[in-house]
Design a protein around this nucleic acid. Structure first.
Ligand SMILES: [Mn+2]
Ligand SMILES: [Mn+2]
Ligand SMILES: [Zn+2]
Ligand SMILES: [Zn+2]
Lengths: 137, 137
DNA sequence: TATAAAATTGCAAATAACTTGCAAATGCAA
DNA sequence: TTGCATTTGCAAGTTATTTGCAATTTTATA
């Protein structure tokens, strides 16, 4: 059973920070660095535990970039159920993009019909360069 | 500069094992378990070092399954440059499939034209259920 | 508002999967 | 056969993350 969540200073701070930077992704260490300067300093364990809870509750998406060894978290609540589409991640800036368009149906259709493969959003990640980084590279 | 490789007992054993199970992927620990029973017992560090070299030389592909915390290695030499296409991994049996068909062009085309995203094979992994596991599930 | 159960926190210690340093052993080109 | 380059084994180091536990905070309810 999913357990109740209490509202706390740190959960609020973390949520607020990620929500106001919803187009970027951060590691636990990033967030720790950001919030440990505050009046009362946060603890790294607390960062991990809150990120885990916020992920479970669907506010964040947790994923690991190819070649990186730390998880990154991004605020994705407005994108609803991120299980129904797949994602693209920019290997340069790390940003996450949601493949929420009609092409999803073509993709799942092709994979199923020609390869017998039933695509799932969970764990599917495309890597490459986003429009911005493509220009500046 | 890429350095010369000597042929050794352990490199041969690891290659042979992975090549003869080319439709499956294994973790370093799997291979260590498999080969440590042999006459002369292998060392885990040696497993890691050889897997790394075999990957660099293009014989193996190294990837991390969604949700797993250890890398897996699969013999992919016959598939040539696995940078030019993307892969599908079965979340049930772990097998890796190569998306080597004309749909790759449609996929890269769509992503570039409609999302400004330049897809790269390196690090792109689709997750789901393969035909076999779909049936048995 | 007082109370108690449940959730959260901080700190230190534990994990897990690798990686590295170094001296000894092995492979190979000449 | 020799000599240099690569590989190996072992112990120790890293890094990101998790866990145990006692103290603190939150929240529901009396
Ligand atoms: Mn999404
Ligand atoms: Mn391939
Ligand atoms: Zn980018
Ligand atoms: Zn399968």
């Amino acid at each position: 059973m999913v357990q109740k969540q209490y509202r706390t200073k740190w959960k609020d701070s973390i949520t607020e920070y990620l929500e106001s930077h919803a187009d970027q992704c951060f590691s636990a260490a990033d967030i720790y660095a950001e919030l440990k300067g505050k009046e009362a300093s946060i603890n790294l364990t607390t960062v991990y535990r809150n990120l885990e809870k916020l992920t479970e509750s669907g506010k964040l998406m947790k994923y690991k970039a190819a070649g990186e060894d730390a998880y990154r978290y991004q605020y994705v609540e407005p994108y609803g159920n991120c299980q129904e589409h797949i994602h693209m991640q920019c290997r340069e800036c790390g940003k996450l993009f949601h493949l929420e368009c009609s092409f999803m149906k073509e993709l799942t259709g092709h994979l199923l019909e020609h390869h017998g493969f039933m695509l799932e959003g969970q764990g599917s990640m495309l890597s490459g360069l986003c429009g911005m980084c493509k220009k500046n590279c």
